[in-house]
């Protein structure tokens, strides 16, 4: 669509690449760079954060630090999701992923203090508590039919949207902005889910849907440990049988349609054209859904 996201203006004189470069420079500890544990910062989070701050009276410098702080905390927490159980052959990388996440969290606090935004430390802290509670809920649940897609989407919406909502509460406590953020995060969740592999035991939207639809016997393939080729094939055929990926795609299209209406109203057609580019499956037709079944 001809929009250069890097040069996207987030505010008068403040561009996407300026915030990104600033944040990337801060997190670029040589040891973390050498081990390639640093994340690519989410442009969607930055774009949405900037949209929330549109009407605030914050100057460009404070705005830059606030957005950088938020995106650093978001990634600091995300990095810890890569830590799995058991030993790994890349011990140093595992250790630095933990410490890298902690480092990004520490920069979050420093940036907010430097920007004189102590109130935001408090608001974001509450959001971080909620994020970890939601992560723990997802971690704890069993795919036995007691956990439904509504619960799952709500938990993921907290994980990816709580920091943005804290920003909304502080700088744009308006229903339509909140709805806009909720829909954008929801679209992002569906978009990611369309990319995920639905292996046994994995908490994915398709697997959660399957856990609601499958019979008791079929459910055994959903939680099968250890995983096997035969089990994965059977699981894949169950996803085809119940059309779970098609449901995920329908959900995505529905949310995108609602988002389009709200976004055009709030950020205009040009803004929507930019936002749409953040979603990989924005132009995927429903006819492609069957090819995505299983995984």
């Amino acid at each position: 669509m001809g929009v250069d996201l890097d040069n996207l203006s987030l505010y008068e004189g403040l561009q996407m690449n300026e915030v990104q470069t600033f944040a990337e420079h801060m997190i670029a500890h040589q040891v973390l760079k050498d081990e390639s544990v640093l994340p690519a910062l989410s442009q969607l989070q930055l774009f949405l954060g900037a949209a929330v701050l549109t009407k605030s009276s914050l100057g460009a410098t404070v705005r830059k630090r606030l957005l950088a702080a938020m995106v650093m905390m978001y990634h600091g927490l995300c990095m810890h999701d890569f830590i799995t159980e058991g030993k790994t052959s890349h011990e140093k990388r595992r250790q630095l992923t933990i410490l890298g996440g902690d480092f990004l969290s520490s920069l979050f606090y420093r940036l907010l203090v430097e920007a004189g935004l102590l109130d935001m430390v408090k608001s974001f802290s509450k959001a971080i508590v909620n994020i970890n509670e939601a992560k723990m809920s997802v971690h704890e649940v069993q795919l036995n039919g007691t956990y439904n897609e509504g619960d799952y989407l709500k938990d993921l919406s907290t994980i990816h949207g709580a920091l943005l909502r804290a920003l909304c509460d502080a700088y744009a406590p308006f229903e339509r902005i909140r709805t806009f953020i909720d829909l954008a995060i929801s679209a992002n969740i569906y978009d990611r889910e369309l990319e995920r592999s639905n292996h046994a035991g994995e908490k994915t939207l398709a697997n959660v849907l399957l856990s609601q639809l499958a019979t008791e016997d079929e459910l055994t393939f959903l939680v099968m440990q250890p995983r096997s080729e035969v089990g994965d094939k059977r699981l894949s055929s169950l996803h085809s049988k119940y059309g779970t990926m098609k449901r995920v795609l329908f959900g995505f299209r529905e949310v995108m349609s609602q988002l389009e209406n709200v976004a055009i109203d709030l950020i205009g057609r040009d803004g929507w054209a930019i936002l749409e580019r953040f979603f990989q499956h924005a132009n995927t037709g429903t006819e492609h859904a069957p090819s995505m079944e299983g995984g």
């Binding site: 927490l77 810890h80 999701d81 830590i83 799995t84 159980e85 058991g86 933990i98 996440g101 902690d102 969290s105 606090y109 203090v113 430097e114 004189g116 102590l118 109130d119 430390v121 408090k122 974001f124 802290s125 509450k126 971080i128 508590v129 994020i131 970890n132 509670e133 992560k135 723990m136 971690h139």
Partner: peptide, 30 residues
Amino acid sequence: GNRVAMYTGDFIFAQALSVLSGISQPRAHH
């Protein structure tokens, strides 16, 4: 388990910042 330990640490860190944000002296935060 590891995952729970990661979430617990992040949860505790957030609670720490929440408590500390009640300190009114900017110098302390700096």
